[in-house]
């Protein structure tokens, strides 16, 4: 069990983003991860064509949080038929911004010596939670009061049996910080904060009933359109 132990941040398993049939034999699978404060795209490139592939480059369309490659795609050697390589591409969040649908959608173009190929991928919003996301308690209380009720969104997290310390630890490994814990009538209430790379703060109340395996998550944010993506990240973090 990982209870009480630092176990790293949640990283989605790689999925196929570009099937070989759509890219003249180039297959790309990948994931976007946050590791030690750095956001990176982790790619596996497979050459399923009959010819060598060279001259790789990558470009992103503008996107909701300004994600952009922070370096060139490093594929040093030609990729032979049937060869597969893993590549890590560091990302920055200071690229051009345009609101995407859904918000966490990223459109990517990859070129090689054969052609240019396009694909879309979805990344977990938790990669954008910064290490400096612990809000001061006084500021939290004032902000919680200040954000109007119509900006509050509520979600159920079902089938989760972790205790509140395990929950806090798992979330903190993903830069979701518990700043207060209260027990009221047998319910554990955790008050939490996180900050996105673009400066948006999200405040959370996680309510856990001892008798139930379902948690209630209430999120308050001045940009409430991010809330459903934050909920998705809570689910992924707590259930993995």
């Amino acid at each position: 069990s990982n209870v009480g132990m630092p176990c790293g941040s949640y990283v989605e398993p790689k999925t196929v983003w570009l099937p070989a049939v759509k890219a003249k034999g180039l297959e790309i699978s990948g994931t976007v991860a946050r590791r030690m404060g750095t956001i990176q795209m982790e790619l596996t490139l497979s050459n399923k064509a009959m010819q060598v592939m060279t001259d790789f480059a990558i470009q992103f369309n503008r996107n909701s949080f300004g994600l952009a490659p922070a370096a060139a795609l490093q594929v040093h050697t030609p990729l032979s038929p049937n060869q597969t390589i893993d590549v890590v591409l560091p990302l920055s969040t200071v690229g051009p911004v345009m609101k995407m649908e859904p918000l966490n959608n990223l459109q990517v173009a990859v070129k090689n010596n054969i052609d240019v190929f396009y694909f879309s991928c979805i990344y977990p919003i938790s990669i954008l939670f910064v290490e400096e996301g612990r809000m001061e308690r006084q500021v939290f209380l004032a902000t919680w009061k200040d954000i109007p009720n119509e900006n509050e969104a509520q979600f159920h997290i079902k089938d989760c049996r972790l205790n509140s310390d395990a929950v806090s630890n798992k979330l903190q490994n993903n830069n979701i910080f518990s700043i207060a814990k209260r027990n009221v009538d047998g319910q554990e209430m955790l008050y939490q904060s996180m900050r996105l790379t673009n400066g948006i703060w999200v405040l959370a109340e996680l309510r856990m009933q001892a008798s139930s395996s379902s948690y209630m998550l209430s999120l308050k944010c001045r940009a409430p359109e991010v809330s459903q993506f934050v909920f998705q990240s809570y689910e992924a973090i707590l259930k993995n």
């Binding site: 209380l141 209260r182 209430m189 008050y191 109340e205 309510r207």
Partner: peptide, 20 residues
């Protein structure tokens, strides 16, 4: 938790949320 004098405020918040 650090005793910053806000413990009571969080208790009030939690109670108001539990019993609106």
């Amino acid at each position: 938790e650090i005793d910053d004098g806000l413990d009571e405020a969080f208790s009030r918040l939690a109670e108001s949320r539990s019993n609106p």
